[in-house]
Structures are given as C-alpha cells and as structure tokens.
Design a binder for these strands. Structure first.
Lengths: 337, 337
DNA sequence: TACAATAATGTTAGCGCTAACATTATTGTA
DNA sequence: TACAATAATGTTAGCGCTAACATTATTGTA
C-alpha cells in the first residue's frame, strides 16, 4: 500500500514550525531565519516533499500554466512555434497545454473552453479559424491572449497580436525578380482559405501594379502546399507557356516541386528561371541548387508570445516586443542576390 | 472593473438549491429531479458558469490532465505521436501538457518534476535519456506511466511500455541490402544514449553476423538526428571510402542528409548506393528519389498510449492493447523492392 | 393508512495550499 | 536600560469544489 505523498503540513509537523514558515521556505518568499530555512529544507528533502501546484493555484489564483492552440502540431511551421513557446515556458517555470483543432472551428471552441476551465493564465492561439464574433466570445474566457497571425478589429489590453508580414514579403520577392529583368513571374499560391496565401497574392499583385506590369490571371495557381502539387502544377504551366522565367511559391515545398519540374523541362536554374519560396525549411539549404526563400523567426515568435503573456501577468508595464515580423530574405542559388 | 467569474455557490444561491445539487447537475452524477436539473442549467447558463477544474481536481484528486514528454517536438516523429496523444485526449476529455527536453537528461528530470507538481494523472514519456536508476526515481512521482521506446528491467503495474521493434527493423533492412549484393553497408546511427539507436545497432550487427560478414567499426557513426549531421557525416565517410554502397540510417532525416551528400559526390542512387531510413516522415515520399524506410503507426501509438493511461485510471482491468509494434517496410526508389 | 424503500436534496468537513493579519523575538540606537 | 524598528514566526480564514454522510420528500405495496 503506497501512502500519500507528504504535504506541507507533514513537513511543518516534523520540523516543528508552522505551515506558513514551511511555505515561506519552499517559495523563497518573506523573511525566514537561515537556520530555520536549512532545517525545513532538510526535513522536506527527507520526507520527499513536493509542492502541490493544484492547491497552490487555488489559493493564489495563478496556475503557472498556459494553453497553446494550433491547427496541427505535425505542420513544421507550428511545431517550431510550439518549440519556441515551450522553451521559453520552461525558462519561466510555466507548463504548456498543447491543443490541436484540425482546422475545425467547433473543436477550436471546445479546446478553448477546456483550457479556460483548467484556469490557464493565458493562451497563445495560432491561425484561428473562428469568425470575429465567435473569437471575441471565446477569448473573453481568458485573462491574457496572444494571437499569432490573426488580428481583431477592436484591440484590447488583454489581447495582443503577432503578425507575419506576408504582403510585404511577397511584394519584396516579386520586386527582386523584376530587378533581375524577369518578365513572366508565376505565383504558385497556397490553399484558397489561407489568410497567408491571400496576403501573398495581394503583395504579388501590388508589386506588379507598382511596376506597371499587366497581370495575367493564368499566372496565379492555387495548390495544396506539397512538393508533388508544386511539381505537377509547374509542369502544366511550362507546357502551356515555356517563356515563364520566374516563380514565387507559397512555401518551400511548392518551390522545390517547381524546381523538379523545371529540371525535367531542361530549364536551367537560375539562368533561365528563378525560384523563390517561403519558410526556409531545412531541405531548402541542403538541396542543390539551394532555394531562395523568405522566412520568419518561428521559434523566436513562439518565445515572444510566451514572454508577452508572462509580462502581462506580472506587471502592467508597456510591452516593447516586436508585434509585426518582417520576413527575412535568404538568398541562395535559385535566385541569387 | 471586471468581476470574478461566477462560482458554483453563486449558481446555487440564485437557483435556490444547495451547492451539492448544482454540483450533481454540472457533473451529471447522482439523482436530481429533471425539473431541478433544467432550472439549475438555466441559471448556470444565465450567469455564464464555468466549472473550475483546479478546485475540482483538489477535491477529487484527479486533474484530467496528462503530461507528454518528448526530446523535441519539431522532430516529425514526435509531432505525429503528439498528434495521436492529443486527439485521443480530446476525445476522452483530457488536456495534455507538452514538454521538450532537448536530449538533455537534466531538463528531462526538471520537466518530469514540474509535471508531478502539477498533479498530472499520468505521463507519456518518449525516448527517455535518463539511466535506469534516474528513471525509476523520476517515474516514482507518477501514478501512471506509459513509456514509448524504453523498457525497464523490473516491470510494474503502474508503468507500461510500448516498444518499437527496431532490432528486427534494422536486421530486416540490412538483409534487404545484402540481398541486393551490397558489400559495404554503413550505419548512420543516432545519439549514443538512445535506446532506439542501440537496438538498431544490434539489429545491424546481427544481420551481418548471420551472413558471416566481417564488421568494420568505421562503418558505424553516431549522429544527432538531423539532416545536416547526416549530410556532413556521409560526406566524411565517402571521402575516406568511396566504395561504400549502402546506408542504413537511424531516421529519415539522416537518410536524406546522406542522400544529399551522395548527390554532391555524384553517387547515383540507387544504382551505386542504396539508402534506407526509419520513420517515413512526409518528406521521404516527396523527395526524389523517394526514401525507402521502415515505419511505425505513430499516431496510433500516441492514441494507444493515451488510452492505456485512461484505462489505468479508471479501472484495474487487464489491458489488451498491442505493446510491441513491428516496423512496416515502405519501398521507394532509394532501395527498391 | 402505514411504512419500508427509494428518490431527492442538504450539511459538514476537507482537499493542500497562501493571503492577510497578528504576535513574538531580536536588533540597534539614544 | 528602554524602546522603537524590524525580523521572524504564527493564526485564521478561504480559494471553489466534492466525498461522505444526513435528512427530507415521494413512491409503492400490503
């Protein structure tokens, strides 16, 4: 028969002091005589005392716990963010609840509710698929919220947003290609419902317009963000129009797929055709030729999200973290500087 | 000034019943007159009552919370397992704490301690890097444990193991390569402390021995399980010995890294050199040539781990889930059937 | 109608902590 | 030595629930 783990009261009894004195020692808070501290710590170690955070949370109304809500943790983009959040949480003494919602707004609502019931101190919500009204309602359950890649019309001091500047990323990429005298630039766009794909399309069109270049609707194709879709779509495009001389892709997987199609067509990269992707996945720097890409500091974004929640908790100081992340241009052989 | 969220006591007061009656309604437990239930639910909805699971946990000594501890969530192998665990947890009404330990036994110990303090009902621990003594000590903190890919000498009714049969996987792979008349088969092994790497090495050696092939210690190299390490290590090996004609890699990331090194060396795959990896990460089927690999049903393993903890919690019935998982051979171009 | 069985509801105490206030011990200074 | 200031420790009540037992209401049967 395994007996229950020892409580604060057990330690107090054995050490011959009050529970509050033990509490002060354990939490390193308030004044305690050094000899008393030593003695209490010794007894605590002897009986193997471990504080019960459930009880502590109930008393302090703080759980040292946050929720991280993502569409799908198997997507490398989100697992990098999750890593950043968790690393920072570990540093700060927090624990992270992970929830997937599988692009399903109902499940998103469910998991948010469950996190609120678990009394998390805050949440980091990535790429929410709820509409604004639903979202306001859900977020009302929380004391502190950081949204990643989603903005609400009415800002609030309990809700912060971290925004990825895909519009300017795409614009920058297209202008880079134009500066290399590229004439027919194709956009391999992402899923139609994607906020990020929408921003990149806007940036692509804005760059063309700025340079007075007519836009041919045939030059934008929507793809699922996979290598095979990039390859197939690019093959089709090249068949119809061999004069294509540049590609901007929604992500690196599409870019690599497009590159494979070009190689089959005998298009020499980058001399005859340049390619730019997004995300900087590990493969992009290892493959030959290397893929030029625009990327965001994903781990850092996760880490900042956690830091913001922590600071919101602890003090009302004005936060001076970056809120908008400019994409970083990484030049490799597929579209050199 | 935002007022505190309503408590069970607020609902009881407003509905004119005792707190226990409200508790019974909320938890759907015990006998309550249908009219009373309706009335209580109406009041609860009116005031926007949400149960406080911290308080409930303290009273019931159950947190409906588990911990998932992995070396690195950005490794696709673990993010798939995490997905399986979380999906099942969602179905069962549980929440999952995610912790990374970065191959660092000290951090592993830290996060286990923090999970115990948060009173999780159980943990799923993947690829522990602690030695047996440390591990026993850490696991003693928990009521229920599922280990993935780690076995302890003394089994226990609170600790279950799900084992991936890496020994036979590696043996199978090497025999496949031998059947293709490969003579110099390199093993790109994983981290030295990894149980899985150890099993794969044993399988590799067993296959060589079975076919009376001398083993050259230079043909086993330990790598961190990343693409870049695979590439660098393979480059070095090829420089020293261009006659290498096959590679078995600890995982697909290493396998892909090795493939990139081969391409730089002008080695034609699979004609001049065959490659087999482990895990079947998504990239392995997209890249060209596709990577032949041995894989396990990762989401299912995660889901079973969660189910086992749930069943351990709820009843002491004997569990009849599979405990050992045979690898599945997936043939692609890098080492065809 | 009488009363045992059961349904429905209520009361008490406690889960393991800490906030807030209260008391006692120790220090330093005039 | 006297006493205010501060250090050190203690006491009380409560965080928001539920387990366990207690009581009251309602049912069915002889």
């Amino acid at each position: 028969m395994k007996k229950n783990s020892p409580t604060l009261s057990d330690v107090a009894l054995k050490a011959g002091v009050s529970m509050m004195t033990v509490s002060r020692v354990i939490n390193n808070k308030g004044k305690v005589k050094p000899e008393t501290r030593e003695h209490v710590l010794k007894i605590a170690a002897e009986v193997g005392y471990r504080p019960n955070y459930i009880a502590r949370s109930l008393a302090t109304k703080r759980s040292t716990t946050i929720g991280l809500v993502v569409p799908d943790i198997t997507n490398p983009f989100f697992s990098e963010i999750a890593k950043g959040v968790e690393d920072e949480a570990y540093r700060l003494g927090y624990n992270v609840f992970l929830c997937n919602f599988d692009e399903n707004p109902e499940r998103e609502f469910d998991v948010l509710t469950s996190l609120a019931e678990k009394q998390v101190d805050g949440i980091v919500l990535c790429s929410s698929r709820q509409n604004n009204k639903q979202l306001y309602h859900s977020l009302g359950l929380f004391k502190h919220v950081v949204l990643i890649n989603r903005q609400l019309p009415a800002p609030s001091h309990t809700i912060q947003s971290l925004i990825l500047d895909d519009f300017n990323g795409a614009k920058l990429a297209v202008e880079h290609l134009l500066s290399h005298k590229r004439k027919r630039i194709v956009l391999l766009s992402g899923p139609k419902q994607s906020h990020s794909a929408f921003q990149k399309e806007k940036g692509y069109l804005a760059a063309l317009k700025k340079h007075n270049i007519a836009h041919d609707p045939e030059q934008i194709k929507h793809c699922s963000p996979t290598m095979i879709c990039g390859k197939d779509t690019m093959s089709m495009l090249l068949k119809n129009d061999p004069t294509i001389d540049a590609v901007l892709a929604f992500n690196d997987l599409l870019a690599i797929g497009a590159m494979l199609a070009c190689q089959e067509f005998g298009k020499i990269i980058p001399q005859e055709l340049e390619i730019i992707g997004f995300d900087d996945i590990p493969l992009s720097k290892l493959i030959i030729p290397g893929i030029t890409t625009l990327t965001y500091p994903k781990k850092e974004i996760g880490s900042i999200a956690m830091k913001i929640i922590y600071q919101m908790m602890d003090q009302d100081i004005s936060l001076d973290f970056p809120k908008t992340f400019a994409p970083q241009f990484i030049f490799r052989q597929s579209s050199p500087k």
